[in-house]
């Protein structure tokens, strides 16, 4: 009898241990959504753990990363706006200095091969250096960020939990931030549930919109990420800054005015649109493609298939397309507490 009790006790303890372990695993494990391809990010070089993810999340929301401790990553990448700066065409950083491009969403970055509108950063682990050191964003040096973290009362212990050592280095700091960013996965829109056969179905209007999308938008905004990750000139009239986009990175004239094709996921939360946020509504975006595409240098050939550059869309088609695009909004992603400031 005693023996049996003991056995039961041991079993219970084991069960609890297993459960808590499982909870942590679920919480921190990278799961490739069923309808997504394999990620591009090198997960083998940065194993995602609960503690590493939590450290990354804390860093993401900590204004300590900026020169005057006022601006965090989360300042311009707001979860409720799918980690963009909702309502801002361009963002204001330290001392309200203005940048020149629209803040991109922190979303499905594990599948991206280059970062920023011009693809100037080729490794997610190197990306945070850009906003941290940018004069108009956080205006801080990386060395100083590390010094502030080292002298903090809490961070050394958090680094020890995450990486096994209280030493705070560029590598561990960047890898922690990557762990958080990699876990910012948006894969639970209605579209995703439909594609995975989880129950819901497109309405007739959405379905027709999906057909129009596949025919007229899908080659650049490729499923399931809704971007083919390429750089293209979509015929925007050059703005006052004459931002030449990818040319600044490659110095190849054929890249002038090309920008990364953005994803179409979560458009309901990420207005305004385009690299400089010049279009405030989706109607304005569709109007651009229908009526206002400019014959600028390197205009994408796909926008040049008819006499008039652009994509011919009737008003009825636009409504159906908008109905389909709404199925790409992922409420779960923008309300997931795991990704929020704690």
């Amino acid at each position: 009898m005693i023996n049996r009790k003991l056995t039961m006790g041991v079993l219970l303890v084991l069960l609890f241990y297993a459960c808590s372990k499982q909870v942590e695993q679920q919480y921190a494990v990278f799961r490739q959504p069923g309808n997504f391809p394999a990620p591009a990010y090198n997960l083998a070089g940065n194993e995602i753990t609960g503690k590493g993810f939590e450290l990354g999340r804390k860093l993401f929301y900590d204004p300590l990363l900026s020169a005057d401790n006022t601006i965090s990553c989360g300042t311009c990448h707001v979860q409720s706006a799918a980690f963009t700066h909702h309502g801002h065409d361009i963002s204001h950083g330290i001392n309200d200095r203005l940048g020149s491009r629209n803040a991109q969403p922190i979303m499905n970055l594990a599948w991206e091969k280059t970062f920023m509108w011009d693809g100037g950063v080729a490794d997610l682990d190197l990306q945070p250096i850009v906003p941290i050191t940018s004069h108009v964003e956080m205006n801080e040096t990386l060395g100083n960020v590390l010094n502030k973290l080292r002298s903090s009362a809490v961070y050394p212990a958090l680094y020890k939990d995450a990486f096994g050592s209280t030493a705070i280095t560029t590598a561990t700091t960047m890898k922690a931030l990557s762990q958080f960013m990699v876990m910012c996965i948006s894969s639970n829109s209605r579209y995703d549930s439909i594609m995975r056969g989880e129950g819901p179905l497109f309405t007739q209007e959405e379905n027709e919109g999906y057909g129009i999308f596949q025919q007229k938008c899908g080659s650049c905004h490729k499923e399931p990420l809704f971007t083919d990750l390429s750089f293209r000139n979509n015929g925007l009239r050059p703005g006052p800054l004459n931002d030449e986009g990818r040319f600044a990175i490659t110095l190849n004239a054929a890249d002038t005015y090309k920008f990364k094709v953005p994803s179409l996921r979560n458009l309901a939360y990420t207005a305004p649109y385009m690299h400089d946020g010049r279009l405030r509504t989706l109607n304005a975006v569709l109007h651009h493609y229908g009526q206002e595409v400019q014959e600028t240098l390197n205009l994408d050939p796909l926008l040049r298939q008819t006499d008039k550059p652009g994509i011919a869309l009737t008003e009825a088609e636009k409504l159906k397309l908008l109905a389909f695009l709404r199925t790409l909004n992922d409420k779960k992603f923008i309300t997931d507490k795991k990704l929020s400031e704690q």
């Binding site: 090198n42 070089g45 950063v121 490794d123 682990d125 190197l126 250096i129 850009v130 941290i132 050191t133 940018s134 040096t141 990386l142 060395g143 960020v145 590390l146 280095t169 560029t170 590598a171 960047m174 890898k175």
Partner: peptide, 22 residues
Amino acid sequence: DISRRTGVLDPASYSDHGMYWG
């Protein structure tokens, strides 16, 4: 990989005059 960039290759190692383009 960032973990291999130590010493003078560490982007955090420059005080005033950075030797790294982010």
